[in-house]
Amino acid sequence: MTTEVKAVTPTYSEAFQSGVREEMNRNKKIFILGTDLVERGGHFAQVKGIAQEFGLKQVRDAPISEAAMVAAGMGAAMYGCHPIVDLNFIDFSLGAMDEIINQAAKIRFMFDRPVPLVIRATSGVALGGAHHCNSLESFFAHTAGLSLAVPSTPMDVKGLIKTALRNEDPVIFLMHKKLSGIRGEIGDENYFVPFGKAKTIKAGKDAAIITYGYSAVTATKAAQALEAEGISVEVIDLRTLYPIDQDAIDAAVTKFGRVVVLDEAPLFGSITAEIAATASERNFKSLKGPIVRVGAVRAPLSANPAMSEAAIPSVDQISKAVKQVMSY
């Protein structure tokens, strides 16, 4: 009798490592800089072992100087390198916002020079309170010149980081901290996920939830709960917020006419507002009722776990939103 050994699939963080390793092997101009990368491997083990494998020139531990870290990456990118600046938490990008928004994003337009730079960080709500849980997607998506990846699976993490590292644009690469340990298949070295291509993660017949990041998980849970009540919901994971897959959004609106848009950012001014507004402008006549948005309350995140959880969409809230669009 033989024992079948089932290989353990990689985690979301390991998927990032895998994509970066493959691209670094191919292109020595790729390097990573950030805080606590060499020994700790980053706060989410996202680059664990890479310094030991590639050396301290390819993985640099930086002082806690966010503005200088991004400036270093940007200047080196303008010079011809392809740096990954790892900020660990996107909340920390606020100390480098001029470098990101005013500088890196605008150089190509003004100076006709690409800035091949990846800024990686975690985003979204987990424990940690007001300074470690922000969802700042709309800041970046709003800025011309920036692209924004928000993967929800190991497969997409690897496929998207590889695409980012083969291109020449400044990319904000946001990984949801609550997904760090999830496991899943990843692609081989020739597997790339293009930006601006959404993925249907659950097919449905009655309505669609358009979402991204960790909300893809809660949306799927809500869709499963709704199946029991006889409502068949499609869940669409955008995977990138800029470029955004407008074709997939249009298709969902025209197919179902009943759409929920979901994320963890405070509703006012969020990317969900952009999606809903554009969808209704483009396909108003296909809608059976208003698009319903589900997002966070307008409040900083609390340290209290129950309060923090209450700030963001629950499975129940999402289910209610679907029932609302089904009521029209």
Binding site: K29, F31, K57, A67, A68, V70, A71, A72, G73, M74, G75, A76, A77, M78, Y79, G80, C81, D98, E99, N102, Q103, I107, M110, F111
Partner: peptide, 25 residues
């Protein structure tokens, strides 16, 4: 010429990054 800048204090960081690129390559 990595540019003038409308934001006071931005130039040193960009030059520092270029110097990092020079050193890396």
């Amino acid at each position: 010429h990595f540019g003038g800048n409308g934001i006071v204090g931005a130039g040193v960081g960009i030059a520092m990054g270029a110097a990092l690129g020079i050193q890396h390559i």
